[in-house]
Design a protein around this nucleic acid. Structure first.
Lengths: 215, 215, 215, 215
DNA sequence: AATGAATGAGCATTCATTCAT
DNA sequence: AATGAATGAATGCTCATTCAT
């Protein structure tokens, strides 16, 4: 499959292509991201592409994996110094949103993966969720978290992060009317009040509950 | 834009095309959903397509709008007989998942809209969220809901529904490993335990809180 | 071939179609003048077209013939009251240019006929030229015109009229640079000085010559 | 716009395409000259076309320019050894007719340009006429030519050449009846008597006049 | 007489991929 | 290692024409 270069020069070329692919896929989508556009953006000849990737699908999947590795790394790293679960969560979300702002490709590419490579899509979400699951399980064992199923809660958190990120990072601050230019986005940050409200929502959901539950 | 037929026969043909588009877009994605595939599925000649839709994009956007109208209708209708906010929420989510199971197109089509027609995508989410927002605002005024910002909470709920729906309705029950055929899906239902856990999560998030909040 | 209507209403519809065809062919050219455009311009249904014309080619040829009849009529009529050949010529050219200004279709349609219907093209030019030939022959017999072959002179005059008409009527007054909008034309008139110079040129060419010829 | 090849092989392919275009446009006209027909005639694959030309219109315009350059070159070259204006004129027209006979595309393509690319059409005629204008101006200054406006005379000459060329070169010798196959042409030459008569006509038009002019 | 629906052939254009250099 | 040339399959879209009403 993926062909790996023998020389350092080749290594650089390959990296350039992958970086170019991130830009081009994010800007045009899978179908309209022609190999030519990628090689042009990378500053190499058309034929060079096939020296390092067997097909368009392959570079796409590698890109998804790559982005996945990078978000997860960013999130984990952010949560490392945290005192408790809550602080870690907060840091993780912050990191997630920051990554989203810096790499709009993450959203655009992943969303398209639904059809292009369902395998890649599933693996992307699943890996992130796995991180949540183990963190939540540990927290539950430590009594920091209420009686929610870690798996379900993990997917819910994933959904919250994704949707809030889409709404406030990708779309920007403005009201999401039909009017605004939908492409002029990708650099905002989630406003503090929104972030706080979101964390409130999550805390409430995860907090241990002393009182009797309704229903 | 959209051209409307003058006769009943034309009306029927147009409806057949729209129905075919739902199937075809869901199965192949926007880029690979050729007009020919759509007209074949509709049982009409190629040229007939352009009697009713000016372009592929146009039928796509109309389809998104159509699906949007239909989910919202299903959700509203479901919540109508509910005693309290919680029951309504529960019914709404159930309806949402049922609709998702019956119309996998909703997910696949909407997700692709990110690139195909950002306008359609935004409008889709925004309209659904608006429903949540007004329901939450009313519930908060009635003291049924805690002190969360209705807008943020609404987007969070949207995210939860979408992610849980994707995971358990579209992907089915199985573990989301790299192995299973990712296309053989779309008909499962969210298992009861998962649904209950999700509702627990949501209740916790929205419940009025007596105790002092950290931070 | 051409189908003729039985009723007065039909007669009117047919005339409307022919008039619409003049406009549409002039504006879009043969290839881009769709039947739909013609019927739309005529304010009738698509199918109605084929009640009166067997094909697109047929209405085109009829239009060429029609325009041809009308220019020739305009030119003949104009020359009728003239005292001598020269005055007649002058009036004929004036009429030709006026017709051109009012019916840009004449040029555009005829020029395209080169490929669409060579038959129609030839017949158009030939018929006009025939008028010149007989006028020149008569004038030569009367000694009003020098010793030029009427046929060759007639084609030369045709060429002059067509080229001057294109340059000053269709293109307008402006310098024919690459810049001006080439479609914004068709209503100018040949300026008087140009017209006079052209007539001088023609007079010189046709005038009887007493002196010895060079060569 | 026009893309130029980087290698000699590409240069050859590009030239083949342009030559094929001349043939195909002349034979079928712009609208019916499919890219496939051109690439077939050139002996290359369909896709190859777009390596060198951005569109059908572009190769058309380049072809018009190319033909224009070539006629003008042929005409100028022919008139180079001439003793006087008249001899030069004669040689120029001969060259023009010869070129027309060898490149029927000149006529057919240019005539269609009226609608396809008015810009190209104007520029074609204007450039040729400019040559006439400067020659006539010089001749007038030298007293070789009478008191006609060089610009008007130049357009008149252009018209004469075009019409005579069409009549005797493109249509051939035969009477231009409705019968003859209109496509079986393009190789005749203007008969000597016709050519001489045409030159007589032109001489008369341009000759200095001693006597008093009517009007 | 009039119409609108239906159709399939046809075309410009794009693009992933292969290959010779 | 790198490149640009070449290709043909595929697709969105247009349009003259036919037909049932």
């Amino acid at each position: 499959m993926t062909m790996h270069p023998a020389t350092a020069r080749g290594e650089r070329t390959r990296a350039r292509l992958l970086a170019a692919a991130e830009t081009v896929f994010a800007a045009h989508g899978y179908a309209d991201a022609s190999i030519t556009r990628i090689t042009d953006a990378a500053g190499v000849g058309q034929g060079t592409f096939y020296l390092y990737f067997a097909s368009k699908l392959e570079i796409f999947e590698e890109l998804v994996d790559d982005l996945n590795r990078r978000v997860r790394h960013a999130m984990t790293e952010a949560g490392e110094g945290a005192r408790d679960r809550l602080e870690a969560e907060r840091a993780g979300f912050r990191a997630f949103f920051r990554f989203t702002a810096e790499h709009p490709a993450l959203y655009r590419v992943v969303r398209e993966a639904e059809l292009v490579s369902p395998r890649a899509l599933r693996s992307h979400y699943t890996r992130i969720v796995e991180g949540y699951i183990s963190a939540l399980s540990a927290a539950r064992a430590a009594g920091e978290v209420g009686d929610v199923d870690p798996t379900v809660a993990a997917w819910a958190l994933m959904g919250i992060g994704e949707m809030i990120g889409m709404r406030w990072v990708l779309w920007g601050d403005g009201v999401a009317g039909d009017d605004a230019d939908p492409m002029a986005s990708g650099t905002s940050q989630v406003p503090d009040e929104v972030f706080d409200q979101m964390m409130r929502f999550i805390e409430g959901a995860l907090r241990p509950r002393g009182e009797g539950e309704e229903r």
